[in-house]
């Protein structure tokens, strides 16, 4: 839930998604869901020459299960807040 919440705060930011098939796609994060499926707008495929497959695609849906990394804009993520929230959630988990 935590990472889902982080993504929700990052809508309309530019992110780069690296997939498990080594494809890298940069775009504006339009939405995310509980499975961390991602909707990106205005996409650019990294190394377009090698991957002309998506030339006519401007926006896409990416299945969460195939994402390796998502590069986030550092200025829009409050890491302190995130760390605290994580510690709180871990503590709650341990209590249970």
């Amino acid at each position: 839930m935590l990472i889902f919440s982080v993504f929700k705060t990052l809508t309309d930011q530019k992110v780069t998604v690296e997939l498990k098939n080594d494809l890298s796609i940069t775009g504006v994060l339009k939405s995310v869901d509980q499975f961390l499926n991602i909707r990106l707008d205005k996409i650019e495929v990294f190394d377009e020459a090698r991957h002309p497959h998506m030339m006519a695609v401007k926006n896409c849906f990416i299945r969460g299960s195939v994402v390796r990394y998502v590069q986030l804009p550092a200025e829009h993520v409050d890491t302190q807040l995130l760390e605290d929230a994580t510690r709180r959630e871990a503590a709650a988990q341990n209590k249970r």
């Binding site: 030339m55 006519a56 926006n59 299945r63």
Partner: peptide
């Protein structure tokens, strides 16, 4: 669904021009 990596909306005009 578990076989899908990505679903992209095709800009038909752009696709035809390729």
């Amino acid at each position: 669904g578990d076989q899908i990596v990505l679903i992209g909306e095709l800009d038909e005009a752009l696709d035809q021009s390729v």
